[in-house]
Write a protein that binds this DNA or RNA. Structure first.
Length: 411
DNA sequence: ATGTAC
C-alpha cells in the first residue's frame, strides 16, 4: 500500500467519475489527454481510479501511458490494435571493447537477420529474409498453433492474416532493435515490437464487435472507442482468449527476433559470448487479470509496464537518448505500474515539419543508425525529457541499469 | 501499427 507522503500523485477529478491519479510531476500533460482520461474515468466499471504514467499522451482509443483497472467489463479499444507490444532486453557477457570499431557492419548484419519495415510474405524484396530460419520459428509457432486453431474455428477471417509468417519480424513505426552499453560498458541487446498483422486484425475485429454489440447505446458513451464487453457475454470470453493469444504471439515474436539478433552479433564479434543474463521480456500494451487491493481485477495497461515489487522492466528513451532497466517498487496506488518510455510531445507529422535531416544527424551523432528524412519523426526532441519522466516515477520503479544506444535498427 | 486501396 502506498502510504508514502512524498509520493507525488497529482489528482484529476471527474464529476460523476473515478479519480485520475497521475505520476506527472514536472512533466507536461496535454489538455486533450486530460479530457480523454476523464472520459474513460466516467465508465461505471472502473475499479477505484485510473493511474497515469509520466509519458502520458493522447492516443487512438485510449490514452497512452494509462492504467485502466476494470471489474466486470473490458474495453477492447483501450488495449488497441498493437496487442502485446513491448520490449525484450538481454545482457551479454561482452563489453564495449569486444565490439568492432566500425559498427556499420553490425547494423547491416542485424538488418539482414531480422525482417523489418513493411514486410509481407508476398513481397519479392523481402523474400530472402522470409525464407530463413524456419525451424526456429516453427518451434515457437508450435506453442501458439493449438489456440490459434480454436480462435480461427470461431473467427475464420483470422486465417487470412499474416500470422506465422510474421513471427520473428519487427514491423514499422517506432519498433526498433538496439545494441546498447550499460554503465559498466557491458553490451545489451534490446528490441521493441508487438503482435504484428495478426494481433492488429484481432484488435480491429473485437473493437468493431464491441461497437456493434452496443450500437443502440453507443451514443450514450463519452466516446465510441469506450465500447465494452460485459463479463459473462460470449464476446467477452472470446476477446479474453484472443487478446491473451496475441500477447503470447508478441512475446514469442520478440524471443525469435532476439535470438536472430544475437546470432547476427556472433557473426561480427569473434569472441564467444554468453547471453540470457538479466533477460527481461515485458508487454506495455495489454490486459490481464491481476489482484489489487485484495480484489480480482482486469488491468489494461496502454503504454504502461507492470512494476510489481522486484519485477524487472524496460523503459526505452528515444533514439539517441538513454534507456533504463528498472525494478518495480510495487506501488499499489499505481496498480504496480510504470511508464513505457519517454512519451511523445508532438505528432510524427509535426516532428517532420519542425526538424531537418541535419537536426537528426546532430541528435544521433553517437549512434550507428539511419539518419534520413524518413526517420525524423523519431528525433529525441519530439519526445519528453526522459530524465524528467524517470524522476516523476521514482516512487514506482528504481533504476537498475542506464543504457546508451550504439546501434539502432528502426522498423 | 498494419493492411489495403487509391
Amino acid at each position: 500500500m502506498s502510504k508514502n507522503p512524498h509520493d507525488p500523485i497529482q489528482l484529476l477529478s471527474t464529476p460523476g467519475g473515478a479519480p485520475v491519479k497521475m505520476w506527472t510531476q514536472g512533466v507536461p500533460v496535454e489538455p486533450e489527454a486530460r479530457a480523454q482520461l476523464q472520459n474513460t474515468a466516467k465508465m461505471p466499471f472502473i475499479f477505484k481510479h485510473l493511474a497515469v504514467m509520466p509519458d502520458v499522451h493522447l492516443g487512438k482509443g485510449s490514452t497512452i501511458g494509462s492504467v485502466i483497472p476494470t471489474r466486470g467489463a473490458i474495453i477492447p479499444a483501450a488495449v488497441g490494435v498493437d496487442i502485446g507490444c513491448g520490449m525484450i532486453a538481454v545482457r551479454t557477457s561482452l563489453t564495449a571493447a569486444d565490439l568492432p570499431d566500425n559498427l556499420a557492419g553490425l547494423r547491416s548484419a542485424i538488418e539482414q537477420a531480422v525482417p523489418h519495415g513493411r514486410t509481407t510474405a508476398r513481397s519479392k524484396r523481402d523474400k530472402g529474409a522470409w525464407d530463413r530460419t524456419p525451424q526456429e520459428v516453427d518451434s515457437h509457432w508450435a506453442r501458439l498453433a493449438p489456440r490459434f486453431k480454436r480462435l480461427t474455428d470461431n473467427y475464420p477471417q483470422l486465417l487470412k492474416t499474416n500470422n506465422h509468417q510474421h513471427l520473428g519480424t519487427l514491423g514499422t513505426g517506432n519498433h526498433f532493435i538496439e545494441v546498447c552499453l550499460d554503465e559498466q560498458q557491458r553490451v545489451w541487446v534490446m528490441l521493441h515490437s508487438g503482435s504484428r498483422g495478426v494481433g492488429n486484425a484481432i484488435g480491429t475485429l473485437f473493437i468493431a464487435l464491441a461497437q456493434k454489440d452496443m450500437q443502440r447505446h453507443i451514443a450514450n458513451l463519452p466516446d465510441r472507442d469506450l465500447a465494452y464487453f460485459e463479463e459473462g457475454s460470449r464476446h467477452f470470453d472470446d476477446y479474453m482468449a484472443a487478446v491473451g493469444w496475441a500477447q503470447d504471439f508478441a512475446r514469442h515474436n520478440r524471443e525469435v527476433m532476439m535470438s536472430r539478433v544475437l546470432a547476427a552479433l556472433s557473426t561480427v564479434v569473434p569472441k564467444p559470448f554468453l547471453t540470457q543474463q538479466e533477460a527481461v521480456n515485458c508487454h506495455h500494451n495489454y490486459v490481464q487479470r491481476e489482484k489489487h487491493f485484495g480484489e480480482e481485477v482486469l488491468v489494461t495497461r496502454k503504454g504502461a509496464v507492470s512494476a510489481q515489487k522486484g519485477e524487472m522492466g524496460i523503459i526505452p528513451g528515444s533514439m539517441g537518448a538513454k534507456s533504463f532497466i528498472v525494478r518495480g517498487l510495487g506501488n499499489a496506488e499505481s496498480f504496480c505500474s510504470c511508464s513505457h518510455g519517454a512519451g511523445r510531445t508532438m505528432s510524427r507529422t509535426a516532428a517532420k515539419k519542425r526538424f531537418s535531416v541535419e537536426d537528426q544527424i546532430r541528435a544521433t551523432a553517437h549512434v550507428e543508425c539511419r539518419k534520413d528524412s524518413e526517420v525524423i519523426d523519431e528525433i529525441p526532441m519530439a519526445y519528453k525529457d526522459i530524465d524528467a519522466v524517470m524522476a516523476a516515477q521514482s516512487s514506482l520503479v528504481e533504476i537498475v541499469h542506464t543504457l546508451r544506444q550504439v546501434v539502432c535498427v528502426k522498423g
